[in-house]
Nucleic acid binder design. Structure first.
Length: 439
RNA sequence: GUGAGAGUAGCUCAGUUGGAUAGAGCACCGGGUUGUGGUCCCGGGGGUCGCGGGUUCGAAUCCCGUCUCUCACCCCA
């Protein structure tokens, strides 16, 4: 009986595993050079932990189960609650700022579609304990640092940055009631996907006052922080003023960090859930055909919501699915990046003539390969005792840099070392070769 | 949860108004070639045409059911 793979999961054959490792190694490398330390938690937690900051609808998209002791558990759909739990547990002994990263494997019982699977990897970085917008900028910089590192340019992707604080201040100033915010956020979040007329119609439903609706529409279409005053006049020291200054400072810092060309102010970015409190951002492909590559923002109430003290936090999450699609589209995942390399392929031609020449041993290829490996080099031999041509062919298909041929010359302790790229070959004494490789 | 599309070899796909033993390219294995590879030539293995039923002398092809996958919506932590 053939059993198919479970919906929304992936089998990582060696080629796919190479891609996955390449992506994850990049995430880790960039996290470390940006000063983040790695952490991880269990892949399942108490179900209720995932219900704290998310509504029931999201709880329905969990893989949950009961253990034999009757505990309600769930496979983690995100790692932020685990982070909050871990930080809260040791909050008084952790040096600040807490700059941590993780690459958890996550599961969500959603219906899979392009760029969204039921099991995936997600890079998370968080800075906890810093109120300053500099921390938000550093999170965004680290995100761009990675994307730029793997070859994506500012004409491939943009980080769209906004601020929940600014949005709330502007909406208040415009005269929208606080109770309306959440449903309005949901609409604004959808703006990019909707035709302009549909958006206007839906906006009119939520904000019946035409003048107010027009101000909201004008605000979310702004491309520049300095233009806000044209839509919503404000006073020095007001909430709007504070939020604008913070937003402008974030953008100024990103310019100083030399990633300004990747970043744009986009007030229509709000992010799904209500727990963001300040700067929010999403990374999108410029063409806009894919779902968000990553996103994040400030969530100053999170630790408190998980039973800890009120400590500010800001962070980012990026999944591997959309990223891989984009990298493939841009030709940044070509074989040369991922092809496995072999330092040496050892060919023994003495095998079949051993009987007529007792000096030679059929074990030489195995012996030499093992010595090369113990020197830290990757080395292979053929399981088949085929002719030289066949074995060189095998070496080529294994992408060997060099071949070592054990032939007649081995009677004098000499080996042929062939460079597979240039085709050049030389006779080398075995001891000299090993001495050379050891150095 | 709602809607649309697609299922033929490991992969990408052809398969005419229903017709004989279901094909190609790539991949894999072997040979050409027992001391010189990558390109080339020849050969081989691999299929319950998603599954079940129906129509028919005859079904990959037509009909019904069913399963699975993909895409979009909802949602997106």
């Amino acid at each position: 009986m053939k059993i198919p793979p479970v919906k929304g999961t992936r089998d990582f054959y060696p080629a796919g595993m190479a891609v996955r490792n390449w992506i994850i190694d990049g995430w880790k490398r960039v996290s470390l050079r940006n000063g983040f330390e790695e952490y991880d938690g269990p892949i399942f937690e108490y179900l209720k932990m995932f219900q704290i900051k998310s509504g029931d609808e999201i709880a329905e998209q969990l893989f949950s189960f009961q253990d034999r002791g009757g505990r309600d558990l769930a496979i983690r759909p995100e790692i932020t609650p685990t982070l909050a739990r871990m930080v809260n547990q040791q909050i008084n002994s952790l040096p600040r700022p807490i700059k941590w990263f993780s690459v958890p494997r996550l599961c969500r019982a959603e219906r899979p579609q392009k760029g969204r699977l039921r099991e995936f990897f997600q890079w998370n970085i968080d800075i906890i304990g810093i109120d300053d917008v500099l921390a938000d900028a550093e999170v965004i910089f680290t995100t761009v640092d990675y994307l730029r590192d793997v070859g994506l340019t500012s004409s491939d992707i943009k980080v769209k940055i906004s601020s929940r604080k600014l949005l709330a201040a502007v909406l208040t100033k415009v005269g929208v009631a606080k109770e309306q915010f959440d449903s309005l956020y949901a609409l604004l979040d959808k703006k990019a996907k909707l035709p302009a007329e549909t958006f206007s119609a839906l906006l009119a439903e939520q904000v019946p006052d035409a003048a107010r609706a027009e101000k909201v529409r004008a605000f979310v279409e702004l491309k520049n922080v300095s233009e806000i005053k044209n839509v919503v006049p404000y006073k020095m020291g007001s909430d709007v003023d504070d939020a604008i200054n913070e937003m402008a400072e974030c953008i100024r810092l990103l310019d100083i960090m030399d990633v300004g060309d990747y970043c744009v102010f986009d007030p229509s970015i709000v992010r799904g859930l209500a727990y963001y409190t300040g700067i929010v951002f999403e990374v999108h492909d410029v063409v806009g055909q894919l779902r968000a590559i990553g996103g994040g923002g400030r969530f100053d109430n999170l630790l408190h919501d998980f039973g800890g003290p009120s400590i500010p936090a800001t962070g980012m999450g990026m999944g591997d699915c959309v990223l891989e699609i984009l990298l493939r589209e841009k030709g940044l995942l070509d074989e040369s990046v991922l092809r496995k390399e072999l330092d040496f392929f050892v060919i023994d031609l003495t095998v079949e003539r051993r009987d007529s020449d007792g000096v030679l041993s059929e074990d030489e290829a195995v012996r030499l390969t093992a010595r090369l490996r113990s020197l830290g080099l990757s080395a292979e031999f053929s399981y088949k005792s085929a002719g030289l041509g066949k074995q060189l062919k095998e070496a080529s298909s294994r992408n060997a840099k060099k071949c070592i041929i054990i032939g007649d010359e081995f009677k004098n302790g000499e080996l042929v070392v062939k460079d597979m790229a240039t085709g050049e070959q030389e006779l080398v004494k075995l001891d000299e070769l090993l001495k050379q490789l050891q150095a």
